[in-house]
């Protein structure tokens, strides 16, 4: 069970109050004359990392706003939340995530 603090309204609640919108920072295609392979990749292919991941979440049964969340998909540890408009994860959140993952003796991403 994830306990998530919404950066928009400040409320802390169980994951059931939130909705996960999947992988963050996927760059939108130009929208015209995209190759089929590019469109398929954009719509369906995902990094699906085992370790540090960045996701979009929505405070569905709260303020209703979207935000970004940094998490470890192995340990479920949450490293921080940040603005939905951020085009990439903020450096301080990445640094904090790396520090806490290293403290557990884990690599940033693993395959097995």
């Amino acid at each position: 069970m994830l306990m998530i603090q919404c950066p928009c309204c400040g409320a802390t609640a169980e994951e059931a109050d939130f909705h996960c919108g999947g992988e963050a920072h996927i760059v939108r295609l130009a929208g015209d004359n995209d190759a089929d392979a590019d469109l398929g990749a954009y719509l369906f292919e995902r990094a699906n990392p085992k370790g540090l991941c960045f996701e979009r979440w929505r405070h569905q049964y709260g303020c209703g706003k979207w935000f970004h969340l940094a998490r470890d998909s192995r340990t479920m540890e949450i490293f921080g939340v940040y603005d939905i408009k951020a085009p990439a994860p903020p450096a301080e959140i990445v640094a904090e995530a790396r520090r806490r993952i290293a403290a557990r003796g884990l690599p940033e991403h693993s395959n097995n």
Binding site: M1, E14, A16, G22, E23, K50, E55, R74, T75
Partner: peptide
């Protein structure tokens, strides 16, 4: 509903 490699699920799904 979210990415997970831990082989442990959520309490809310059980509920």
């Amino acid at each position: 509903s979210y990415l997970n490699y831990s082989q442990r699920g959520s309490w809310s799904a059980i509920e």
